[in-house]
């Protein structure tokens, strides 16, 4: 059993399982699969009521979303118990070559050790990636009304044209970053 759990999950198994989140959350209590809103509820919880209309609502009525993201953290922890020794993400050779040009040659684990560490955070590139990147994710998700889960999965599942526009935006921004900006940051 442990040996089976230690294997990475193939994409054709993971895709349908993630898709099942949509009906599961609806059937439980008519909730829509979406994750980035949790940050809004956290803001609403800590900011004084009535000061900003965007954060003045009954966030406790949306508590399920905070419980859900807590579950995601626990799920990540449980998955860590099944990570085999010397685990590396098995990406394609072409990507490894492309990342090599950015000085990333260590593919062990799920994220590059060269980038996600405290001393890199103290460099301009580290600030761009972890600080500016995080800020854009939170700002852009609310501005665009959702993230990958809310638009790409929930929205597209419900054939929403606004979600398709948002997803095109996700990729426009992502490709611009990958091909034009990230090479400048990492070189």
């Amino acid at each position: 059993m442990l040996e089976f759990l230690q294997q990475p999950m193939p994409w054709y198994v993971a895709g349908p399982l993630i898709g099942l989140m949509v009906p599961l959350l609806l059937l439980l209590d008519n909730r829509q699969f979406g994750i980035s809103s949790a940050y809004r509820h956290m803001c609403a919880a800590v900011l004084p009521k009535g000061k900003f209309s965007f954060f003045s609502y009954d966030w406790k009525a949306q508590r399920w979303n905070l419980v859900f993201v807590l579950g995601i953290v626990i799920g990540g922890y449980l998955a860590s118990l099944t990570t085999p020794e010397g685990y590396a993400t098995a990406i394609s050779e072409q990507t490894k070559l492309a990342l090599g040009e950015w000085g990333i040659t260590n593919f062990s684990g799920l994220i590059p050790a060269e980038i996600f560490n405290l001393s890199f955070l103290a460099t301009p590139a580290g600030v761009a990636i972890m600080v500016v990147g995080g800020f854009f994710i939170g700002f852009g998700a609310r501005y665009g009304g959702g993230c990958t889960s809310g638009h790409a999965i929930s929205g597209l599942s419900n054939l929403q044209l606004p979600s398709l526009i948002a997803v095109v935006g996700f990729f426009a921004g992502g490709l611009l970053m990958t091909y034009f900006i990230l090479p400048l940051i990492l070189n």
């Binding site: 994750i35 980035s36 949790a38 940050y39 993201v69 995601i72 953290v73 626990i74 799920g75 990540g76 922890y77 449980l78 998955a79 860590s80 990570t83 799920l110 994220i111 761009a128 990636i129 972890m130 500016v132 990147g133 995080g134 800020f135 854009f136 994710i137 939170g138 700002f139 852009g140 998700a141 609310r142 501005y143 665009g144 009304g145 993230c147 990958t148 889960s149 638009h151 606004p162 979600s163 526009i165 948002a166 997803v167 095109v168 935006g169 996700f170 990729f171 426009a172 921004g173 992502g174 490709l175 611009l176 970053m177 990958t178 900006i181 990230l182």
Partner: peptide, 29 residues
């Protein structure tokens, strides 16, 4: 809002290399 906000999100997505849900899972991991 979908075009502008979505593109800003995309810039962040490629920078961090993770979207909101995965960030929680990575912390747990």
């Amino acid at each position: 809002r979908y075009i502008i906000g979505g593109s800003i999100f995309g810039l962040g997505w490629a920078l961090v290399g993770a979207c909101p849900g995965p960030m929680y899972a990575l912390v747990g991991d």
